[in-house]
Design a protein around this nucleic acid. Structure first.
Lengths: 189, 189
DNA sequence: CACGCATAGTATCGTATCGATACTATATTA
DNA sequence: TAATATAGTATCGATACGATACTATGCGTG
């Protein structure tokens, strides 16, 4: 069992990444969590761009997330839009200013520099390992997976190569299927 | 380049781990950082068990670390000991109560459960990948490595299989060489 | 339809985090 | 011996984050 070793490396990586995010965000008055929330909103689909989506993703309480989103809105990085179907719910869109910020800050230099010193094959191996570890953790602990449609059991790829979600019973555009979804459930193969 | 992919998985893993640590520590009134500080002190060597060692490891300011250590001492998980050589410095020892806590909480169930669902080979691959990623990040960004003597360029293994540190110019016991050190510098091969 | 219950989101409060700054004490060096 | 560097502490202010209480809307069942 390599449990301890895996924990040790993960703990270290986790710390380095968080400190980097703190340093980076500081110039813009953003905390690590807020930056992560903004990033999440920039890569999630239209079923997931709500406060509750962020709650599930970041694993914090509604109150905390509500605070973070208020700040992101005040700073002009996101905007709130009413949901026509469900009036309790709102959608959060990343503004052009927010998109610009994400583009500047993510991925952080810490990771970029490291990848510059790793060849294709090494990067592939690392990606595969991280993916497997993440999926196993999520599966073993009954967690949401937040994947893209391609790996989702609700996704139906039709003959004409268009996409359809069997959960929401709606057609999906090509670009939408590359966003992450809070309803995602990994195909059990 | 897999920079974005690697960042994404790492960010996710990092978040899950931190949330788990928060949940775990809560029962004992410990925050994630404090738990990490305690764990660090339980695996570092006698050159590294000082407040400054924790500062380097966790990447926080002296003040913050000082606060965390005060709390750990109040809760009886660590004890402070004067350094005979340098009177400015103190050594932090994990008490038996602290050791017991670490044994209970680390590694966290999140990781343990996942490892139970991964075979030997998969775990080895993941360990290797995490190790390589961490080392590359540390090297590429000029960071301290916090490794064990075995991989340190200052370590001298003598003919009689005893160990000697060429930086501190002191002999090291076998068990000491398995602890992590803040002066560690990876062998450049 | 009406009632209860579930869910999305917000507001507020208290404890704790964490960087910044200022401080003391000891070591080092010129 | 004086200047400077280093280890550690104390304090403060802004923020994080869980807990709780609240409003508003949707949903299900009789």
């Amino acid at each position: 069992m390599k449990t301890k070793e895996i924990y040790d490396y993960l703990e270290r990586l986790s710390n380095l990444l968080r400190n980097e995010e703190r340093r980076e965000g500081m110039d813009y008055g953003l905390q690590p969590v807020q930056l992560e929330a903004l990033y999440y909103l920039s890569i999630c689909n239209r079923y997931s761009d709500t406060p509750m989506g962020v709650v599930d993703y970041l694993g914090q309480t509604k109150g905390t997330v509500s605070q973070s989103l208020k700040l992101l809105e005040q700073k002009g990085y996101i905007s709130k839009h009413a949901n026509k179907q469900d009036k309790r719910s709102i959608h959060l869109k990343v503004t052009s200013s927010g998109k610009k910020l994400i583009k500047t800050l993510i991925p952080p230099p810490l990771i970029t520099k490291a990848c510059n010193n790793l060849n294709e094959e090494e990067q592939n191996q690392i990606e595969i390992a991280l993916k497997q570890l993440l999926q196993t953790i999520q599966f073993s602990n009954g967690m949401k997976s937040f994947g893209v449609c391609q790996t989702c059991r609700y996704n139906l790829t039709k003959k004409d190569c268009s996409f359809f979600c069997e959960l929401t019973e709606e057609p999906l555009s090509m670009s939408e299927t590359q966003c992450i979804c809070r309803e995602h459930e990994t195909i059990i193969s």
